[in-house]
Nucleic acid binder design. Sequence first.
DNA 1: CTTGACATAGAACAAATGTGCGATTATAAT
DNA 2: ATTATAATCGCACATTTGTTCTATGTCAAG
Lengths: 222, 222
Amino acid sequence: MKTKTKNTKLPERQAKMYAFLSDYINTNGFPPTVREIGEALDIPSTSLVSYYLKGLEERGMIDRESSISRGIRLVSDPYQPTDFWADSGETLSIPFLGYIVASAPIPVEALTGTETVEINRALFGRDVNGLFALQVQGNSMIDALIHDGDTVILRHQDRVENGEMAAVWLNSNAETTLKKVYYEGARVRLQPANPTMEPIFVPANDVRVQGKVVMVIRQLSN
Amino acid sequence: MKTKTKNTKLPERQAKMYAFLSDYINTNGFPPTVREIGEALDIPSTSLVSYYLKGLEERGMIDRESSISRGIRLVSDPYQPTDFWADSGETLSIPFLGYIVASAPIPVEALTGTETVEINRALFGRDVNGLFALQVQGNSMIDALIHDGDTVILRHQDRVENGEMAAVWLNSNAETTLKKVYYEGARVRLQPANPTMEPIFVPANDVRVQGKVVMVIRQLSN
DNA sequence: CTTGACATAGAACAAATGTGCGATTATAAT
DNA sequence: ATTATAATCGCACATTTGTTCTATGTCAAG
């Protein structure tokens, strides 16, 4: 029996819509029309798009000018006409999504914050897409050489290469951790960055990669 | 930044129009309509606005999507968000002195020419003097949660406040290490950043502070 | 004065676009 | 089962909006 693979119904659609809006504005420099949104998200009626749009507006995620075409504005976004990641030449503005704690998955959907982390582009490679920043809370990731208060910058992706450090969600343990990931057939080896610590092994279907760790920044007293 | 009149002088009307476009987009998050432009600039006919718009497009100042409403995009608008991290484009060039290894003191002079590490000024406080960067070699500082290859940024000073992380040279041990420093009378307690590890105690005259750790940056596969 | 490029109106038009509303279906609560 | 609520669909409608076409005005060069 086939189902519609809909685990989350309410926020899912809205989140996708917001993502599309953000993406569209980035690439085009102006917001999409109601119909364009519908086409992109397979919403066949314009009124349904309106419906969702109203929802997003009520949540304070977007801002609209009534009756005017393309009158959508992302509230949480300082709308750079050129790029959401605010690639202003030298500096990258990486959205700061919140905190990463061992006891909860990474808040992927909650990209409502206006906060950003300013990093020099020179520190990154050419691919600066999908980056986001989290601040580590607690010392539970000390085996990844990550300290309480550190800022980690990740690239959102659900698959990493062998040996890359990733934020992974362990279903059975119900926790998020930062480890080097090695796929070894049906199981996955999670290797702490600290070479003096032992790896752990979990079934492959138990890990969910939430993003690849690209950088760790520790700011101390200044 | 401001646009200057170049070899081809931009007609007054078009310059004003470009300014208006920029302003409108920054204010509203989406471009204006032909008629809105007309109203703002006292151009009574839409066709005349089109006329100017075409001119701007031919000059490569704007980009348009034909036939779609508000399909205007500024080609080179250096829009700076004034409210956020103003001046976030500022970059600090921190001299890169070389490598820090456990077995040797920190080099005092910059070695190969003028290598620098580019860091965003926003990440630092106001005092940006005496900063220098070192790259950590080896895993000997793992108790400071510092990984092989990490870049540490230090401020050159020979005295730190209690609890601050510093690069210290231990005379008797003949090694450099990164530890939190606590002056306790005649002796100094060197506390690893990793709270699970035990501190070590050394005579006060045995430690030589080489600099205060201001930041740690770990770059991973990108 | 004539010519011709440039600037300007004005209006008509087709397409694009946001909105409203009734009708239908799904979901959850009672 | 029944009811209430949320989700969904279609479609018509009224504007909004970009384009085009014709006509006119300006002004410097020939």
